[in-house]
Protein backbone atom coordinates (compact mmCIF):
# COMPACT_ATOMS: atom_id res chain seq x y z
CA UNK A 1 0.00 0.00 0.00
CA UNK A 2 2.72 2.41 1.03
CA UNK A 3 4.82 1.00 -1.79
CA UNK A 4 2.27 2.20 -4.30
CA UNK A 5 2.17 5.68 -2.85
CA UNK A 6 5.90 5.80 -2.89
CA UNK A 7 6.22 5.43 -6.63
CA UNK A 8 3.48 7.97 -7.19
CA UNK A 9 5.35 10.43 -5.03
CA UNK A 10 8.48 9.87 -7.05
CA UNK A 11 6.76 10.99 -10.20
CA UNK A 12 5.47 14.20 -8.75
CA UNK A 13 8.70 15.08 -7.03
CA UNK A 14 11.06 14.46 -9.93
CA UNK A 15 9.14 16.73 -12.29
CA UNK A 16 11.31 19.84 -12.46
CA UNK A 17 8.44 22.23 -13.18
CA UNK A 18 6.66 21.05 -10.06
CA UNK A 19 9.43 22.35 -7.87
CA UNK A 20 10.01 25.58 -6.12
CA UNK A 21 12.41 28.21 -7.38
CA UNK A 22 15.94 27.22 -6.48
CA UNK A 23 18.77 29.18 -4.98
CA UNK A 24 21.74 30.12 -7.18
CA UNK A 25 23.90 27.22 -8.37
CA UNK A 26 20.77 25.21 -8.87
CA UNK A 27 21.41 24.76 -12.56
CA UNK A 28 24.81 23.31 -11.91
CA UNK A 29 23.47 20.97 -9.29
CA UNK A 30 20.71 19.84 -11.55
CA UNK A 31 23.20 19.14 -14.32
CA UNK A 32 25.30 17.10 -11.90
CA UNK A 33 22.20 15.23 -10.91
CA UNK A 34 21.45 14.41 -14.53
CA UNK A 35 24.98 13.27 -15.29
CA UNK A 36 25.07 11.04 -12.26
CA UNK A 37 21.67 9.76 -13.20
CA UNK A 38 22.86 8.84 -16.67
CA UNK A 39 25.96 7.06 -15.40
CA UNK A 40 23.97 5.15 -12.82
CA UNK A 41 21.43 4.17 -15.45
CA UNK A 42 24.15 2.59 -17.57
CA UNK A 43 25.49 0.69 -14.58
CA UNK A 44 22.00 -0.43 -13.68
CA UNK A 45 21.37 -1.85 -17.11
CA UNK A 46 24.48 -3.96 -16.57
CA UNK A 47 22.65 -6.98 -15.09
CA UNK A 48 20.23 -7.16 -18.02
CA UNK A 49 23.15 -6.71 -20.40
CA UNK A 50 25.20 -9.35 -18.63
CA UNK A 51 22.55 -12.07 -19.09
CA UNK A 52 22.51 -11.36 -22.82
CA UNK A 53 26.31 -11.25 -23.10
CA UNK A 54 26.76 -14.57 -21.31
CA UNK A 55 24.11 -16.22 -23.46
CA UNK A 56 25.35 -14.77 -26.74
CA UNK A 57 29.00 -15.57 -26.15
CA UNK A 58 28.13 -19.17 -25.32
CA UNK A 59 25.99 -19.40 -28.45
CA UNK A 60 28.84 -18.04 -30.53
CA UNK A 61 31.35 -20.47 -29.07
CA UNK A 62 29.04 -23.48 -29.43
CA UNK A 63 28.05 -22.60 -32.96
CA UNK A 64 30.82 -24.67 -34.64
CA UNK A 65 29.53 -27.92 -33.21
CA UNK A 66 25.85 -27.02 -33.44
CA UNK A 67 26.27 -26.35 -37.14
CA UNK A 68 28.56 -29.32 -37.78
CA UNK A 69 26.25 -31.99 -36.36
CA UNK A 70 22.48 -32.45 -36.52
CA UNK A 71 20.92 -31.70 -33.13
CA UNK A 72 19.54 -35.20 -33.04
CA UNK A 73 23.02 -36.71 -33.10
CA UNK A 74 24.21 -34.41 -30.35
CA UNK A 75 21.33 -34.70 -27.95
CA UNK A 76 20.23 -38.26 -28.62
CA UNK A 77 23.62 -39.73 -29.44
CA UNK A 78 24.83 -42.06 -26.71
CA UNK A 79 28.53 -42.24 -27.55
CA UNK A 80 31.00 -39.63 -26.32
CA UNK A 81 34.34 -40.05 -28.03
CA UNK A 82 35.68 -36.58 -28.82
CA UNK A 83 38.87 -38.08 -30.28
CA UNK A 84 36.71 -39.92 -32.85
CA UNK A 85 34.50 -36.93 -33.42
CA UNK A 86 31.52 -38.43 -31.57
CA UNK A 87 29.71 -36.06 -29.24
CA UNK A 88 26.60 -37.79 -27.88
CA UNK A 89 25.18 -35.83 -24.95
CA UNK A 90 22.35 -38.21 -24.20
CA UNK A 91 23.85 -40.06 -21.19
CA UNK A 92 24.88 -36.76 -19.61
CA UNK A 93 21.52 -35.15 -20.16
CA UNK A 94 19.70 -38.14 -18.68
CA UNK A 95 22.11 -38.15 -15.72
CA UNK A 96 21.52 -34.43 -15.12
CA UNK A 97 17.80 -35.00 -15.14
CA UNK A 98 17.98 -37.95 -12.74
CA UNK A 99 20.26 -36.28 -10.25
CA UNK A 100 18.10 -33.14 -10.22
CA UNK A 101 14.86 -35.06 -9.97
CA UNK A 102 16.08 -37.19 -7.06
CA UNK A 103 17.42 -34.11 -5.28
CA UNK A 104 14.19 -32.14 -5.66
CA UNK A 105 11.97 -35.10 -4.78
CA UNK A 106 13.94 -35.75 -1.62
CA UNK A 107 13.89 -32.08 -0.67
CA UNK A 108 10.19 -31.51 -1.32
CA UNK A 109 8.47 -33.08 1.71
CA UNK A 110 10.82 -31.78 4.41
CA UNK A 111 10.98 -28.32 2.83
CA UNK A 112 7.19 -27.97 2.67
CA UNK A 113 6.80 -29.28 6.20
CA UNK A 114 9.53 -27.08 7.66
CA UNK A 115 8.24 -23.95 5.96
CA UNK A 116 4.70 -24.67 7.16
CA UNK A 117 6.00 -25.29 10.64
CA UNK A 118 8.03 -22.10 10.70
CA UNK A 119 5.28 -19.91 9.32
CA UNK A 120 2.21 -21.41 11.00
CA UNK A 121 3.21 -23.19 14.19
CA UNK A 122 6.62 -22.24 15.47
CA UNK A 123 7.15 -19.89 18.39
CA UNK A 124 9.14 -16.73 17.82
CA UNK A 125 12.09 -18.35 19.53
CA UNK A 126 12.13 -21.36 17.18
CA UNK A 127 11.94 -19.00 14.23
CA UNK A 128 14.83 -16.88 15.43
CA UNK A 129 16.92 -20.01 15.88
CA UNK A 130 15.91 -21.57 12.57
CA UNK A 131 16.81 -18.53 10.46
CA UNK A 132 20.58 -18.54 11.17
CA UNK A 133 20.68 -22.32 10.82
CA UNK A 134 19.24 -22.03 7.32
CA UNK A 135 21.62 -19.15 6.54
CA UNK A 136 24.62 -21.19 7.62
CA UNK A 137 23.42 -24.17 5.62
CA UNK A 138 23.18 -21.90 2.59
CA UNK A 139 26.61 -20.43 3.25
CA UNK A 140 28.51 -23.72 3.31
CA UNK A 141 30.56 -23.98 0.09
CA UNK A 142 29.68 -26.68 -2.45
CA UNK A 143 33.04 -28.38 -2.07
CA UNK A 144 32.42 -28.86 1.66
CA UNK A 145 29.07 -30.47 0.78
CA UNK A 146 31.13 -32.67 -1.48
CA UNK A 147 33.40 -33.68 1.40
CA UNK A 148 30.36 -34.45 3.50
CA UNK A 149 28.87 -36.49 0.68
CA UNK A 150 32.08 -38.43 0.22
CA UNK A 151 32.64 -39.13 3.90
CA UNK A 152 29.07 -39.61 5.12
CA UNK A 153 26.54 -40.06 2.34
CA UNK A 154 28.40 -42.40 -0.02
CA UNK A 155 29.09 -44.96 2.76
CA UNK A 156 25.53 -44.50 4.00
CA UNK A 157 24.14 -45.32 0.57
CA UNK A 158 26.59 -48.21 0.24
CA UNK A 159 26.13 -49.75 3.68
CA UNK A 160 22.52 -48.90 4.53
CA UNK A 161 20.35 -47.85 1.61
CA UNK A 162 21.68 -50.25 -1.04
CA UNK A 163 21.32 -53.38 1.12
CA UNK A 164 17.88 -52.21 2.17
CA UNK A 165 16.88 -51.72 -1.43
CA UNK A 166 18.30 -55.10 -2.43
CA UNK A 167 16.33 -56.73 0.32
CA UNK A 168 12.98 -55.05 -0.23
CA UNK A 169 12.86 -53.16 -3.52
CA UNK A 170 14.96 -55.22 -5.93
CA UNK A 171 11.97 -55.99 -8.11
CA UNK A 172 11.55 -52.29 -8.97
CA UNK A 173 14.04 -51.50 -11.71
CA UNK A 174 14.83 -47.93 -10.68
CA UNK A 175 15.83 -49.17 -7.21
CA UNK A 176 17.98 -51.98 -8.49
CA UNK A 177 21.56 -52.07 -7.20
CA UNK A 178 23.74 -52.80 -10.21
CA UNK A 179 27.23 -51.84 -9.04
CA UNK A 180 27.35 -51.40 -5.30
CA UNK A 181 29.87 -48.63 -4.55
CA UNK A 182 27.72 -45.97 -2.96
CA UNK A 183 28.79 -43.42 -5.56
CA UNK A 184 25.90 -42.52 -7.80
CA UNK A 185 22.64 -40.70 -8.41
CA UNK A 186 21.16 -41.33 -4.97
CA UNK A 187 24.20 -40.01 -3.12
CA UNK A 188 24.27 -36.95 -5.37
CA UNK A 189 20.53 -36.48 -4.89
CA UNK A 190 20.80 -36.56 -1.10
CA UNK A 191 23.63 -34.02 -1.12
CA UNK A 192 21.70 -31.80 -3.53
CA UNK A 193 18.53 -32.04 -1.46
CA UNK A 194 20.33 -30.60 1.56
CA UNK A 195 22.05 -27.96 -0.56
CA UNK A 196 18.86 -26.59 -2.11
CA UNK A 197 16.74 -26.91 1.06
CA UNK A 198 17.62 -23.50 2.59
CA UNK A 199 16.66 -21.64 -0.59
CA UNK A 200 13.41 -23.55 -1.04
CA UNK A 201 12.43 -23.16 2.61
CA UNK A 202 13.08 -19.44 2.71
CA UNK A 203 11.12 -18.83 -0.50
CA UNK A 204 8.22 -20.97 0.73
CA UNK A 205 8.26 -19.19 4.08
CA UNK A 206 7.92 -15.85 2.29
CA UNK A 207 5.09 -17.25 0.20
CA UNK A 208 3.22 -18.50 3.27
CA UNK A 209 3.46 -15.08 4.84
CA UNK A 210 1.52 -13.59 1.91
CA UNK A 211 -1.67 -15.30 3.08
CA UNK A 212 -3.64 -12.72 5.09
CA UNK A 213 -4.23 -13.65 8.73
CA UNK A 214 -7.91 -12.78 8.30
CA UNK A 215 -8.36 -15.95 6.24
CA UNK A 216 -6.70 -18.12 8.86
CA UNK A 217 -8.85 -16.52 11.55
CA UNK A 218 -12.02 -17.00 9.53
CA UNK A 219 -11.31 -20.72 9.45
CA UNK A 220 -10.21 -21.00 13.06
CA UNK A 221 -13.29 -19.07 14.19
CA UNK A 222 -15.63 -21.86 13.07
CA UNK A 223 -13.60 -24.37 15.06
CA UNK A 224 -11.15 -25.75 12.50
CA UNK A 225 -7.89 -27.16 13.79
CA UNK A 226 -4.73 -25.50 12.62
CA UNK A 227 -3.91 -28.27 10.20
CA UNK A 228 -7.44 -28.18 8.78
CA UNK A 229 -6.98 -24.45 8.28
CA UNK A 230 -3.65 -24.96 6.55
CA UNK A 231 -4.94 -27.74 4.33
CA UNK A 232 -8.20 -26.14 3.26
CA UNK A 233 -7.38 -22.42 3.29
CA UNK A 234 -3.65 -21.73 3.27
CA UNK A 235 -2.27 -24.42 0.96
CA UNK A 236 -4.69 -23.81 -1.93
CA UNK A 237 -3.71 -20.14 -1.80
CA UNK A 238 0.03 -20.79 -1.98
CA UNK A 239 0.10 -23.85 -4.26
CA UNK A 240 1.54 -22.01 -7.28
CA UNK A 241 4.22 -20.46 -5.08
CA UNK A 242 5.18 -23.83 -3.65
CA UNK A 243 5.60 -25.28 -7.11
CA UNK A 244 7.60 -22.23 -8.18
CA UNK A 245 9.88 -22.60 -5.16
CA UNK A 246 10.52 -26.22 -6.12
CA UNK A 247 11.26 -25.26 -9.71
CA UNK A 248 13.68 -22.65 -8.42
CA UNK A 249 15.33 -25.33 -6.30
CA UNK A 250 15.52 -27.57 -9.38
CA UNK A 251 17.29 -24.84 -11.31
CA UNK A 252 19.89 -24.63 -8.55
CA UNK A 253 20.33 -28.40 -8.52
CA UNK A 254 20.72 -28.55 -12.31
CA UNK A 255 23.86 -26.46 -12.30
CA UNK A 256 25.52 -27.74 -9.15
CA UNK A 257 28.95 -28.98 -10.11
CA UNK A 258 31.62 -29.75 -7.55
CA UNK A 259 29.51 -31.36 -4.83
CA UNK A 260 27.78 -33.61 -7.34
CA UNK A 261 31.01 -34.38 -9.18
CA UNK A 262 32.59 -35.74 -6.00
CA UNK A 263 29.83 -38.25 -5.19
CA UNK A 264 28.11 -39.15 -8.45
CA UNK A 265 30.71 -41.61 -9.77
CA UNK A 266 31.21 -40.05 -13.22
CA UNK A 267 30.39 -43.05 -15.39
CA UNK A 268 29.25 -42.01 -18.86
CA UNK A 269 26.44 -44.52 -19.23
CA UNK A 270 22.71 -43.99 -19.42
CA UNK A 271 21.58 -44.74 -15.85
CA UNK A 272 18.67 -47.08 -15.21
CA UNK A 273 18.57 -47.08 -11.42
CA UNK A 274 19.08 -44.45 -8.71
CA UNK A 275 21.93 -46.57 -7.38
CA UNK A 276 23.78 -46.28 -10.70
CA UNK A 277 26.77 -44.05 -11.09
CA UNK A 278 26.18 -41.30 -13.63
CA UNK A 279 27.83 -38.35 -15.28
CA UNK A 280 25.84 -35.10 -15.32
CA UNK A 281 26.60 -32.20 -17.67
CA UNK A 282 28.28 -29.85 -15.15
CA UNK A 283 30.64 -32.64 -14.12
CA UNK A 284 31.43 -33.29 -17.76
CA UNK A 285 32.37 -29.67 -18.28
CA UNK A 286 34.43 -29.40 -15.12
CA UNK A 287 36.32 -32.65 -15.59
CA UNK A 288 37.42 -31.97 -19.13
CA UNK A 289 38.20 -28.27 -19.16
CA UNK A 290 41.92 -29.06 -19.32
CA UNK A 291 41.76 -30.97 -22.60
CA UNK A 292 39.34 -28.60 -24.22
CA UNK A 293 41.74 -27.06 -26.65
CA UNK A 294 43.52 -30.28 -27.62
CA UNK A 295 40.86 -31.88 -29.84
CA UNK A 296 38.92 -30.16 -32.61
CA UNK A 297 35.40 -29.10 -31.63
CA UNK A 298 35.92 -30.36 -28.07
CA UNK A 299 35.77 -26.87 -26.58
CA UNK A 300 32.73 -26.07 -28.66
CA UNK A 301 31.04 -29.27 -27.47
CA UNK A 302 31.70 -28.51 -23.80
CA UNK A 303 30.57 -24.91 -24.15
CA UNK A 304 27.41 -26.05 -25.88
CA UNK A 305 26.81 -28.26 -22.84
CA UNK A 306 27.13 -25.11 -20.75
CA UNK A 307 24.72 -23.37 -23.13
CA UNK A 308 22.14 -26.12 -22.76
CA UNK A 309 22.42 -25.89 -18.97
CA UNK A 310 22.14 -22.12 -19.09
CA UNK A 311 19.04 -22.12 -21.26
CA UNK A 312 17.21 -24.71 -19.18
CA UNK A 313 18.16 -22.91 -15.98
CA UNK A 314 17.13 -19.52 -17.36
CA UNK A 315 13.72 -20.88 -18.31
CA UNK A 316 13.20 -22.54 -14.92
CA UNK A 317 14.48 -19.48 -13.13
CA UNK A 318 12.44 -16.88 -14.95
CA UNK A 319 9.21 -18.88 -14.77
CA UNK A 320 9.54 -19.50 -11.04
CA UNK A 321 10.64 -15.91 -10.32
CA UNK A 322 7.63 -14.51 -12.18
CA UNK A 323 5.24 -16.62 -10.12
CA UNK A 324 7.01 -15.85 -6.85
CA UNK A 325 7.24 -12.12 -7.51
CA UNK A 326 3.59 -11.98 -8.45
CA UNK A 327 2.61 -13.71 -5.22
CA UNK A 328 4.82 -11.45 -3.11
CA UNK A 329 3.42 -8.38 -4.86
CA UNK A 330 -0.11 -9.45 -4.04
CA UNK A 331 0.88 -9.19 -0.42
CA UNK A 332 1.90 -5.55 -0.87
CA UNK A 333 -1.23 -4.80 -2.80
CA UNK A 334 -3.61 -6.11 -0.16
Amino acid sequence: MTQQNQSVNYETITKPEGRHARPSGAAHRRRLDQNVRRTFLVVTLLPILLISIVTISLIVRSWPILSAYPLKDLFLGTIWRPDKGLFGFYPYIVATFWVTAVGVLLATPPCILVSIYLSEYAHLLTRTIAKPILDLLAAIPPVVYGVWGLVAIVPFVDKVLAPFSERWLSSVSIFKVNQPTGFGILAAGIVLAVMIAPLIISVMYEIFSTVPNDLRHASLAVGATQWQTIRTVVLPQVAPGIIAALVLGASRALGETIAVLIVVGNVPKVPTSIFDAAYPLPALIANNYGDMMSIPLYDSALLSAALVLLIVILIFNILSMLVIQRMLRRKWAS
Binding site: D214, H217, A218, S219, A221, G223, A224, Q228, P236, Q237
Partner: peptide
Protein backbone atom coordinates in the same frame (compact mmCIF):
# COMPACT_ATOMS: atom_id res chain seq x y z
CA UNK B 1 -18.96 -18.07 16.85
CA UNK B 2 -17.33 -14.86 15.69
CA UNK B 3 -18.37 -12.17 13.27
CA UNK B 4 -15.20 -10.27 12.48
CA UNK B 5 -14.74 -6.55 12.01
CA UNK B 6 -13.92 -6.86 8.33
CA UNK B 7 -15.88 -9.48 6.37
CA UNK B 8 -13.47 -12.30 5.60
CA UNK B 9 -14.96 -14.63 3.01
CA UNK B 10 -12.78 -17.67 2.42
CA UNK B 11 -11.33 -17.83 -1.09
CA UNK B 12 -13.91 -20.30 -2.34
CA UNK B 13 -17.48 -20.25 -3.63
CA UNK B 14 -20.45 -18.85 -1.71
CA UNK B 15 -21.77 -22.38 -1.25
CA UNK B 16 -18.42 -23.71 0.00
CA UNK B 17 -18.14 -20.85 2.46
CA UNK B 18 -21.34 -21.87 4.19
CA UNK B 19 -20.47 -25.55 4.02
CA UNK B 20 -16.94 -24.95 5.31
CA UNK B 21 -17.51 -25.25 9.05
CA UNK B 22 -20.06 -28.05 8.74
CA UNK B 23 -17.53 -29.97 6.68
CA UNK B 24 -14.77 -29.35 9.21
CA UNK B 25 -16.95 -30.85 11.94
Amino acid sequence: GLLAQRPSPLPMSIYDNVVYGMNIH
